[in-house]
Computed example of a mutant assay.
Amino acid sequence: MLRVHFTDADLAAVHVALRPDPLWETVLGLQQLTHPGQGPVVFARGGGTLRQSCPSAI
């Protein structure tokens, strides 16, 4: 098992984006469509319907 320990300084240096990045949203969305069953269960229901309506080139 690999254990990673973070110090208070490490956690204080973490920045959270103010809004989603459109490019990353697109990349991660395509990942969900092209690799069904590997993401969280919450995406399973709508992904099948959307996957059927997309061109086979995706």
Rank of each mutant, 00 (worst) to 15 (best):
V16K: 07
W24R: 14
F6K: 06
E25A: 13
V41Q: 14
R45L: 05
H15Y: 00
S56A: 15
L2M: 11
Q52T: 14
P20F: 01
R19T: 12
L50D: 10
A12V: 02
T26H: 13
G37I: 09
R19E: 12
G37M: 08
Q31S: 07
A57Y: 11
W24A: 10
L23K: 12
D10I: 04
W24I: 09
L28T: 09
T26Q: 11
G39S: 14
G29Q: 01
A12F: 00
G46I: 06
V4F: 08
Q52F: 03
A57H: 08
R19H: 05
F43E: 05
A44I: 00
A9P: 00
A13D: 08
A44M: 00
F43R: 04
R19A: 14
G29K: 04
Q38G: 15
A17I: 02
D10A: 06
F6P: 00
Q38T: 15
F6T: 01
D21Q: 08
G48M: 01
H35G: 02
T7S: 15
R45Y: 03
T7P: 01
H35S: 14
P55F: 03
C54N: 03
A12I: 02
P40L: 13
A57Q: 11
W24K: 10
F6E: 04
S56N: 10
G29V: 02
Q52V: 10
G29I: 00
P20E: 10
P22R: 09
P36I: 12
V4S: 05
T34R: 15
V27I: 14
G47M: 04
D8C: 01
V42C: 04
T34H: 07
L23R: 15
V4Q: 09
T7W: 00
A17K: 07
A57C: 09
L50A: 15
L50C: 09
L18A: 14
L30T: 05
G47D: 08
Q31I: 01
G46F: 03
A13W: 00
Q31K: 07
T26Y: 11
P40C: 15
L23W: 10
H35W: 07
V41P: 06
L23T: 13
V4A: 08
R19P: 00
A9I: 04
R3A: 08
G37F: 07
T49C: 01
T34F: 05
H35M: 10
G46C: 03
G29E: 07
H35P: 00
R3E: 14
V16M: 03
R3N: 12
V16A: 04
A44G: 00
C54E: 10
L23C: 06
P22K: 06
D8P: 03
W24L: 13
M1I: 07
Q31M: 08
P55H: 06
V41Y: 04
Q31C: 04
G47I: 03
D21Y: 01
